[in-house]
Write a protein that binds this DNA or RNA. Sequence first.
DNA 1: AATGAATGAGGGTTCATTCAT
DNA 2: CATGAATGAACCCTCATTCAT
Lengths: 213, 213, 213, 213
Amino acid sequence: MSAEETPEADRAARMREQRRAAIIAAARQTFAERGYHNASINDVIERAKIARGTFYLYFEGKRAVFESLLAESLAELRARIRRIDLGPDARPPEAQLRESLVRVLGHVLENRDFTRLLLTLWLNPDVEVADTVDAFYDHVTALIAASLGHGLRLGLVRPCDPQLVAAALLGTIRGILGYLIETPDADIERVADEIIGLSLRGIGVPGRWTASG
Amino acid sequence: MSAEETPEADRAARMREQRRAAIIAAARQTFAERGYHNASINDVIERAKIARGTFYLYFEGKRAVFESLLAESLAELRARIRRIDLGPDARPPEAQLRESLVRVLGHVLENRDFTRLLLTLWLNPDVEVADTVDAFYDHVTALIAASLGHGLRLGLVRPCDPQLVAAALLGTIRGILGYLIETPDADIERVADEIIGLSLRGIGVPGRWTASG
Amino acid sequence: MSAEETPEADRAARMREQRRAAIIAAARQTFAERGYHNASINDVIERAKIARGTFYLYFEGKRAVFESLLAESLAELRARIRRIDLGPDARPPEAQLRESLVRVLGHVLENRDFTRLLLTLWLNPDVEVADTVDAFYDHVTALIAASLGHGLRLGLVRPCDPQLVAAALLGTIRGILGYLIETPDADIERVADEIIGLSLRGIGVPGRWTASG
Amino acid sequence: MSAEETPEADRAARMREQRRAAIIAAARQTFAERGYHNASINDVIERAKIARGTFYLYFEGKRAVFESLLAESLAELRARIRRIDLGPDARPPEAQLRESLVRVLGHVLENRDFTRLLLTLWLNPDVEVADTVDAFYDHVTALIAASLGHGLRLGLVRPCDPQLVAAALLGTIRGILGYLIETPDADIERVADEIIGLSLRGIGVPGRWTASG
DNA sequence: AATGAATGAGGGTTCATTCAT
DNA sequence: CATGAATGAACCCTCATTCAT
């Protein structure tokens, strides 16, 4: 910790961080393109232009990069989602929801590769890393369920099973994301509106359907 | 074609069919539990209690069982889905939709293993067999989109992008299925009602949300 | 052994012999076409149009058919080769040699498949059956060596190492056979003359070569 | 290309070449002893004392080592064979022929393993690699046939079918090689003389045989 | 720190042989 | 006798991970 060593150490630390980032980037592309199992360490190190052994200096193994990659990417995504503020002075919940959606959709379209990966990882036992993803989905589901509960108490949301509906709404969003990553020039704003419209009012024209459903 | 030969040949054919079904069943569980790549032929033959070579008597290889399994299971599932009849004498579309849903949900709960597998297979590049699954999801999406288009023309459905909404609705259903397969004692009827309610009317209480969304 | 059983037993024995012959024939073609290792029992039983188990009623296994097949075919070939009679009243040895050659060449051209097989079997360790073939080649070599020794004592053959020359002459014949089985319309008589000319007088024009060789 | 890097890189390349050679040597022995099909990669790696994966670092597979081994060994052998110069100032053709023979025989005795392999590979359909060997034998046959044609025009060789005689002479040599590899202390010079004597003048004592043959 | 040659467990597949019907 | 479904040892190959340099 002598002052003399700091500049060198700093530089080394920066280099190390860059390398790590480069490997993660290479891994992200590789896993997205080929799936966890079909992706080989070979693919990753070739893309990252490092030697085989170097890889293991930065990560404990295949599973470890995958986890790191997930953790980082999920954190970025999570940062785009904001809890809806239902306080007295808050802006309309619909607007807040819309902003979160627009941020998420924008991020998704900039990270199609990772999004595809994330979508395929839902419930996937194939991958030893399900936990990280499960935790993310559970987190989001809980967030939605909590919002629903809140809305319910405030009379904004009609009576329903929050758990079930949260699972459904998250599914809706995943469905839309799956559609988006294969649709080059999507209009995010319009899509956000469709999601909100669909979620809040459904697709039925009021009065044209029986009351039973 | 002599009548005398039939009994033996019949019995043999039945036995063969049973074996095949047993292998498919073992494969279904194995693939569902461990994913396509982590599942080994070893796992399958151990579960099916057959010798290694026997497996290859019934299927050309790992990929072939997987495809057969998918094809058969998807066919069963597809058989539960009926196109909605919008003719003048038809029963209310909501009722028809509800029946399809109940059939599908019931089937799903009886085949949790396969359902889990099917859900993980969505968009999966990891699996050499994506085509079969993609075709199924495309088929269902098209079915939904067509229904939406129809409903739109009849004034039952409010203006929307049928492709996008179809992707969303299929996502909603997948979300619910994912929830169900981990919920032991689900009440199918109620779930069907929730899905329909959500799809047609959303979760918002009319009048409590701004008109923009 | 009652007299009544004989006709039946005879018929059965004849049938059995026919089947056996059919299997050997199928095996001969298969082994000739694909080589010992690449030939599968499957190939043989399909060609012979018998069931898998039936094959093992007639032969102990793959190796056993191969040995039987070799033994029978080699016996047929060997029957075409006659020891040269050098007695006082015998016909000219060259004529005798020529007759053996013509018989062998004719047989070879009628059994190209087997000949090819036989040629590839020389020295072949690949095949667990080398013994049978080795014995045949040893037999023929010994025959030639003995003839050479005889001829030597009678002053018909110039001084040489009979073992070495026998190996060489057998090689010459194998070389010719290899050429013949790929030459559809060979004139056996002419070929026999070439072999004898080559063996007895070589290809050199006397007086045009130095004496050293 | 900096001079500093050379020593390391050189050493690495040399090591690599040694390993490769060691594997080829192990393969040569294994294939010679057990034949192509009976030889397993296991045999090879055990003999070469390397791990399974290491083998695949140097060769693409079983067939690839076999082809490399053949190509290298055939090239060495071919290098010992020189075309006979029949020009006006050339040394006597017989002497030239004799030198090629001595070189080839010497090489053969130093590489009994490979020679045995080469001999068994003639016409072998069993082996996926027949082409390389066929090409070699065709090459040598063509060389002999061309020499015969030349000698014929110069009046050194008596009238004959060059193709047939070339096949025969190559057969003669193969026959001798087969004899040699099982004869420990052969006198190469004497064997070369026997081959030449046999080829040019045959084994008959002139005047003691009828003219017909 | 970086390298890349070496490792070996593990996977999918084939095929000669057996045995209950 | 004949059948053909069943068996399992053996084989080739891949790839995540280690370690000497």
